[in-house]
Amino acid sequence: MHKFIPRLGGTELWLIAVIAVICIALSLTTDTFLTLVNILDLLNYSAVNVIFAAGLLVVLVAGGIDISFAVAASVVQYIVATTLISIGGGNWAMGIGLAIGFGTLLGAINAAFIYHFKIISIVVTIATFNIFFGLLMFLTDGVSIYLLPDWMVDRAVFFELETRSGWAELTLPVFVMVVVLLATWLLLRRLNIGRQLFAMGDNPEAARRLGIGIGKMHYLAYGWLGACAGIAGLMQMHYAQEVVPNAMYGRELEVLAAVVLGGARLGGGRGTLLGAVLGLALVAITQNGLNLLGISSYAFRMIVGAIILIAICMSGDTLDALRTRLKRTRATTRHGEAV
């Protein structure tokens, strides 16, 4: 049984402590933060970002980076919606299948350019970010879709309770989020191919010498993120009951900041699903708290930028170099005391 209980590392413990402090502060300064309605609304809204985070973690573990996934989700939203409408409505099975298929295809495009043309992942995904978004806005003229199939706009509620401040509900995106998290956990922690992803992210050359298919790992990592982006886009369409081409534009920074804050190393080879979820929880709670306190949304953008900057400065080689310097300093001090 203990094998299925996640081990809490230093990053996870630190995040839990910070989240607890923020929650206590918000509960004392606002009347609505700790209400069941607000907590479940926060969970329903964050489910899409958690699905994004699960896919992005796989890419970061494999040593890559992708900032095009939120735009890819918007593209998948539009393609799935128009396809379903053109065939008469479809159903959930068709919607999920199309979302995963189109999302995986967009992820594979990134993987192909990164692996076959030997281009740095950040450069490729900046390019595809602009290509995907530009094509979407050009071909749609920025027009939203409001007439969706009935099964898509009928809210699936798995839990509801009437409270003094309104109805508290748990909706379909939360259930799908749990399924995606479980699947990603199985991939990274229970399958041999997950260990190969960690090995490639930690040392690509050593992984190649061990016989790991580097190309296959690229397609797996970016395809997985693409599939998660497709699912997230479908859940956002269900939650919002509409398709707005630029609705998810900018979410990539929130998710990236959260996953890196949760301990995923930008250089690859390190990261936990629990840390990613906790990092996203911290970012989401901070955003929610600022909204409840009436503080400008620009403050949240500054916080996200600061998180990314701090994470880059304190990740990977920087921390390793710092540890090495500390060890050398201690060794020198002990040697001096011995003399």
Rank of each mutant, 00 (worst) to 15 (best):
L253A: 13
L210S: 14
L186W: 10
N203V: 05
R195K: 12
N203F: 02
G213L: 14
R265Y: 00
L197Q: 11
M235G: 04
G230M: 05
R209W: 09
L191S: 02
G250R: 09
I193D: 06
A207V: 08
L273D: 09
G215K: 13
H218T: 02
I214F: 00
T272W: 06
Y219N: 07
L273Y: 06
A221R: 01
V243F: 00
V260C: 10
A257Q: 13
V243C: 00
G211I: 04
R190L: 06
A258R: 08
G230P: 09
I212K: 07
I212N: 11
G226F: 07
E252K: 12
E205F: 12
L220D: 02
G271Q: 11
G223S: 13
G213P: 12
G267P: 01
G268H: 04
R209Y: 12
G201A: 06
D202A: 14
R209F: 15
N192D: 06
R265A: 10
R265C: 01
M217P: 05
G226C: 04
L261C: 11
L253V: 10
A258W: 04
E254L: 12
G263Q: 03
C228Q: 00
G230T: 09
G233Y: 09
L266T: 13
I214V: 11
E205S: 12
A232P: 03
L188C: 15
A258K: 10
G267H: 00
Y239N: 05
L234M: 03
L225I: 12
R189P: 00
G213C: 13
M237L: 02
R251Q: 12
A206I: 14
M217V: 15
M248S: 06
P245N: 02
R195S: 09
V243R: 01
L210R: 14
L234H: 00
A221F: 05
H238N: 01
G267K: 06
Y222P: 03
K216W: 11
K216Y: 04
Q241H: 13
A232D: 10
G201P: 02
M248E: 04
G269D: 04
T272I: 04
G262F: 03
R195Q: 10
Q241L: 07
A264R: 05
V255I: 14
G226H: 07
N246S: 15
Y249P: 06
L220A: 08
D202Y: 07
W224C: 02
V244G: 02
R190N: 11
G230I: 00
I193Q: 11
V260Y: 02
L188F: 15
A199G: 11
V259Y: 00
Y239R: 10
A229N: 11
V255M: 14
G267W: 01
P204N: 10
L210Y: 01
I193R: 08
A232K: 09
E242L: 01
R190E: 07
R265F: 00
V243P: 00
G250C: 05
L225C: 10
A227S: 08
V255N: 13
V244D: 03
